[in-house]
């Protein structure tokens, strides 16, 4: 405890004694994430001789590219304390739209425009219901997830629709045998990182997530910020759709399902608070790698694919519990 010294003691009330207010401590979280990633990697390297090879590690990154391209804008959205559970269905519907139009008209450009329109439309609808009608974002996007998941099946008539337009994209390798998907993923992440950490829009997202009422009183247009965030998720879904089409070469019934769970797990594991106002793109990258290493390792160690869902669900609960415990142990504000 230190006693405060004031310039004019006679003019002031008795100086209060208080410990100097502490500096923030963010390190433990980065350490925890890094340690978890290293522990998983060590475990799987010991369990499987194929894990720690360059080609497998590139595989891991390739496998998380679609998830990551969507998880980056979703991180921004969740920092403003809004959710999006509709990304998997949105991607499925955009994929089906592209595949069906490309098949029926043979025009890849038109089909791509239609798919882009679909992805942005879902974002627009989400933003409309969340900001204008004021429906809780979890409920809104859960409804959209069901609606667009269903529409995707309707559009493709429940059948597989092949579409080879982007297939060379997945095959493209840059010097060093680096898949193009990895470069796209890193590009999206860097872009989102700059948006989030260095622009007025990024600051607005943190402010809205930290305290929506205060954001309004400070002149931030909360509705507009929310709309832009959902549209950015739509753009992410569009880029993800292109990559997904190149990897899967068309629409498959059930494609894209479970994507929302993987995205949510990566984002929350990466330290984005469910309450909003806290989170980073770098954290989400860590979360993605953990999700990717986990599922890759489970495949390599011949754990049945049914266990994948169990592992991913457990990881999500673990991440949320971690977020919760961090909040509970934080020192309450001194009065």
């Amino acid at each position: 405890m230190t006693t405060r010294l004031t310039a004019e003691p006679e003019n002031r009330a008795p100086a209060t004694t208080r410990a100097p207010q502490r500096a923030p401590r963010r390190l433990p979280q980065a350490w925890a994430l890094g340690s978890l990633l290293i522990a998983l990697s060590v475990f799987f390297s010991l369990a499987s001789p194929y894990f720690l090879t360059v080609s497998n590690l590139l595989n891991v990154v390739d496998s998380i590219a679609v998830t990551g391209i969507i998880a980056a804008p979703v991180t921004m959205l969740m920092i403003s304390s809004r959710f999006d559970l509709s990304v998997g269905s949105s991607l499925a519907f955009a994929t089906a739209t592209f595949a069906v139009i490309a098949r029926d008209t043979g025009q890849a450009a038109g089909a791509l425009a239609a798919a882009g329109g679909v992805a942005l439309l879902v974002g627009l609808l989400n933003a409309f219901f969340v900001t204008v009608i004021r429906v809780n974002s979890l409920v809104t996007t859960l409804g959209m997830m069901a609606i667009f998941g269903g529409l995707a099946q309707v559009a493709a008539d429940g059948q597989s629709v092949p579409a080879a337009a982007f297939s060379e994209l997945a095959a493209t390798r840059l010097p060093g045998d680096i898949p193009l998907s990895v470069v796209i993923l890193l590009g999206v992440m860097v872009l989102c990182h700059v948006l989030l950490s260095s622009t007025v829009f990024g600051r607005d997202l943190y402010a809205v997530g930290a305290n929506e009422a205060a954001a309004r009183l400070n002149g931030i247009r909360v509705g507009r910020v929310t709309l832009v965030a959902y549209l950015l998720v739509g753009l992410g879904v569009l880029v993800g759709t292109v990559l997904f089409l190149s990897q899967v070469r068309g629409y498959e019934p059930g494609g894209g399902s479970g994507l929302e769970l993987a995205v949510l797990t990566a984002v929350v594991l990466g330290g984005t608070s469910l309450q909003g106002g806290r989170g980073t793109i770098l954290g989400t990258l860590f979360g993605l790698l953990i999700v990717g290493v986990m599922s890759n390792g489970l495949v390599l160690t011949n754990v049945g694919s049914f266990w994948q869902g169990v592992a991913q669900g457990a990881l999500l609960i673990l991440a949320v519990a971690f977020d919760q415990s961090r909040r509970l142990t934080r020192r309450p504000s001194s009065r």
Partner: peptide
């Protein structure tokens, strides 16, 4: 607490909230 402070954000950032647009560079970066 309910209508004034942006709780997880820093003291400096809290002080600058309404002034962000002015603080931004022409490239919109702060």
């Amino acid at each position: 607490k309910a209508e004034g402070l942006f709780s997880p954000l820093s003291a400096a950032r809290n002080l600058a909230v309404p002034s962000w647009r002015r603080l931004a560079h022409w490239s919109r970066l702060i």
